[in-house]
Amino acid sequence: MFGQIFAALVSGIATGMPLFIVASGLTLIYGVMRVLNFAHGAFFMIGAFLFYNVLGGVTGSISLLIVGLLIAALSVGAIGAVSEVAVFRRLYARDHTTTLLASYALLLTLDGLVQQIWGVSPRSQTQLPAFAGSFQILGVRVATYDVVLIGVGAVLAIGLTLLLQRTSFGQTTRAVAHDQTMARALGLHARGVQLAVFALGAALAGLAGGLISPLLSIDPSLAPTFVVQSFAIVIVGGLGSMGGALIAALLIGLLDSFAVTFFPGFAGFSLYIAVTLVLLLRPQGIFGAAFASREA
């Protein structure tokens, strides 16, 4: 029994951390611009495809892996920047339904584009030998790559929090999130901040795509895979709160893994039950508003 609980605990964290990595960019964008971006899934998918293209399916060394991740993140960041200028910038003043739909339209467009560029055959990214395989702790088998992902997720969470709380960029960003007009009146370059935040959020999706690609079949059906879960994490975590998103992702991962281990019949429902309970009992999300907002 203890073994099973410990195993479920480990696998829950290992399930949740990739979710956080995917959702972190979405949280950032939502926190500053109040945009829930369906196209985030497409950004993720393009990251996976680009990573595959750079490495040709085989991961030779850690340095190559890092190059691949950088290229995936930077290129997707650039796509994010372009879509901010071309689409989202024009919609910040509009209601959230319009923005949601614009992002859905962007998802369709990018999805179609990916099919045009990469075709319809599924691809597979081979794991770096150093990260392949597993080891045992206290009788529980743990995948090496899960530990890598947990590490990356932790670094991202801390890094992003520091970026937002301790740097001047973070200060400006929070000011813009709080009150755009006021920020502009104070001489802050609101547009530039929005562009930078959107590009950073998209780059995080690209990075996630590259990081998680060795565990998935890379094909055009990948785009919607994490979208619903990521939305749930952003909402459950609370408006743009990085810590909230991390806790929400881990919570969802843990619920899923405990459900799978002990109540298989509930497996698919655990996410929905969690979201419903949090929204009904604490509509502002676990952590409430990280960026106090003018009007939610």
Binding site: S11, G12, T15, V140, S257, V260, P264, A267, G268
Partner: peptide, 23 residues
Amino acid sequence: NSEQFVPLSASDFHSQVAAISGG
């Protein structure tokens, strides 16, 4: 030992694999 069933559209089977591995 165990039966794990997932939706047709799912692609993340972390929990299922871990549950099978642990059991």
